[in-house]
Design a protein around this nucleic acid. Sequence first.
DNA 1: CTAACGACATA
DNA 2: GTATGTCGTTAGC
Length: 948
Amino acid sequence: MSDQKRLFLVDAYALIFRGYYAFIKNPRINSKGVDTSAIMGFMNSLLDVIKRERPDHLAVCFDKGGSADRVEMFEAYKANRDETPEAIKIAVPYIQDILKAMHIPIMVKEGYEADDVIGTLSKQAEKEGYKTFMVTPDKDFAQLVSENIFMYRPVFGGGYETWGIEEVKKKFEVTNPLQVIDFLGMMGDSSDNIPGLPGVGEKTAKKFLAQYGSMENLLANTHELKGKMKENIEGAKELGLLSKKLATIMLDVPVTFDAKDFELDQPNLPKVTEIFMELEFRQLLSNFEKTFSVEAVSNASETTSENTETKATPKETKSAGAGQFSLFGGDISSAEAPKENTFTRKTAETTSHFYQSVASGMATKLFIKNLMSQTSVCFDTETTNINPITAQLVGIAFSWEVGKGFYLPFPENKDEAQELIEQLRPFFESETIEKIGQNLKYDIKVLAKYNVTVKGKLFDTMLAHYLINPDMRHNMDVLAETYLNYTPISIEELIGKKGKNQITMRDVALDKQTEYAVEDADITLQLKEHFEKELGEANTQKLFDEIEVPLLRVLAAMELEGINLDENFLNTLSEQLEIDIKSLETKIYAEAGEEFNIASPKQLGDILFDKLKLVDKPKKTKTGQYATSEDILSYLAKDHAIIQHILDFRGLSKLKSTYVDALPTQVEPSTGRVHTDYMQTVAATGRLSSNNPNLQNIPIRTERGRQVRKAFIPRNEDYVLLAADYSQIELRIIAALSNEETMISAFKNGEDIHASTASKVFNVPIENVTREQRSNAKTVNFGIIYGVSAFGLSNQTDLSRSESKELIDTYYETYPKLRKYISEQIDFARDNGYVQTVLGRRRYLNDINSRNAVVRGAAERNAVNAPIQGSAADIIKLAMIKIYEKLQAGNFKTKMLLQVHDELVFDVYKPELDTIKTLVKTEMENAYKLEVPLDVDLGVGNDWLEAH
DNA sequence: CTAACGACATA
DNA sequence: GTATGTCGTTAGC
């Protein structure tokens, strides 16, 4: 196998684009003002591949003139891509010159895409006994993978992964790489404009593949499908076959693989030097020289591509401290590292580790002594339950050295468990030992129930990653796979799938508990080492240390506190709602002439538009149903009594099912209160989100809805609720950030900002502004925050498209700095690849330079909105931390209970009310200094509604 | 039991 | 036009 010749085929544009975006945060502009990012990026990748792999044969493939055949088949093919960025356009001739100087063949064929060229060449090379590696991140290539053809994919964060048949099978859940074509054909690909089958996404495509194996077989057996899906697919047979064709990489491009031509040769160094000097690539030149130096080439190891592992090899099992561990005498679980197999992810089985459980008694004492001598320890609690309030400790895992760790099992008996935790108290309450964890809020809450406070510096890997890349997911399994190329033991393996037969951690054998729990701690520790550096690189260390980490303790306290709920009140409300809903139901049935399920949009649509024919040409949703959304129905309300009844029915049903009936079921029996869970790492802008239950969307707009707020009450008669909310914080932020004086002075003068805006854009004195004018101005003000378009505005108001456009134009004339700010934000995003808040919280916008105008437009709106929404989030988080600290320091009985994006709710001990009102208002208004004053409204009451 | 969708609650 | 979470229906394992 090792004497098999290896051919590397590089997908030029894919790497050029990738290289270009890699530098987008910090574009390379040379002294002549030329953006050389794309060239630099591409050359880095190319040299990297050469250095790592030392290919025998190599060629670089380009597109030319797009795929004539595919456009003929489907005119929309790649149609929604537009202009290539300037830097890439100028890059191509340079790159081709460099490749010529390097004696690397450039493969292009007019009318074909690089995919087709690469596909054709790899199949030819395969026949001649070559092993081919297609260097590209593009998943479409997976269809070409065979025993001798591999994908060689650059991965996020550096390094490469090789996809052979096994990887492709696993990734796409297919039995044969060719099925990738069927997969892509079924689910479609928006970036290539491959339409795909309607109603089929990733999941369904995988399912179909498992069942039918191919597009054709699926289409031939649509009689086995049912209902909607059947209808959809039977109606789209041609589309399906077309999609499959579009996704198929052609293998008959008129090009020839010529082994001699493709041999990787010594470059024409003087020529390369000349070009590099022109581009001012000094660093790259020396790198280049090293790569091609005689020494480097002759020292090239025999590594085959299977050994392209970028991550460190497993740590040695033996270590200096290993001897003492036998003292503990508990379960020893460890595994020898088998020969590295880089085709699959590492797991506990393939990685050497030393995970040990600690027996009770002497071993525990020795362990704790060791623990206390550490300066930084990763820990992870294992419990009986995901609800930290009722969860009992089953064990705690600790790790402070990669690949090694200990598990302390907890007795089931409550007193004994408490005794053990008492032994650990000095550790958790130590101010000097740093604690590392993944989602520490959970562990802190669990431990709080054992009356243990976690003190000292914290490092939460989930929070760290949230700041590094807020758009990704942050659960440990994903992080381990992404950053450590490691698949942790799945919880399902231990306790079974969710539902009927699930057991708890307590029922898992100790050695399994140990493996699982210590692995988590070990991985978390490794992730910490990874993220520590990246936090600094993303310039977000401060945000981590001063906002997110301190906030975690605040949130834990708020969640544990919970809020008191008047269940009786809600039950009464529920009964009243039931009566009203029933009566509406009766009316609707009478008006419709039959009974049906009003809550079913499908049935409702059929009744309204097929049976009653209320409209000539009803709108349809993307799935072909009649659209019955509120905005459509409300237009019809004045003509047909049934419509208003339906809208009322919907409103009341939503109210009843989501709030009035659901909230009482969420009361925690052990505390008698409702404990929401604030998610600190889901909202890409930096906001919190709330669930189980979501207390951030309790109704307020309608009279009926806001009654629900009456159910949120103080803990007892010695307390009242205080609601403190920022007035117009987002508009104040955009006024300040854009330095728009007109708006700033309106705020400074305490004007009604929407009326003030209306007065200016409609050119009337502020006291003559009509309700409608104010309302339109308000809509534009909000539109600005969301990234306006005339289209969106006319949808939201009674204005026509052209009136909307005019209003927006006048608006920008009134507030010229605002327009400037918006375009500067978009430019910043284009140049840097991200935007940021006042505190430097970043949001990366990969689509900002997308060739697809729709996708790009969305990214541009994000570029405007994210800094505003995010800065508001930053500011209230600062305020929360400050207030929490003051409440603690002052030993107040008052507790902070809720956060609703721009509002905080407190359970205030009546004697403290005056002090608290001042404290809260002061801290909130001074949390962050802007050119515009922040203004906070306070409300006090015996329920949340009254407090407003 | 899960996924996809439509509808709708908040800031 | 931004950012979320939850519920009910429908359909298919």
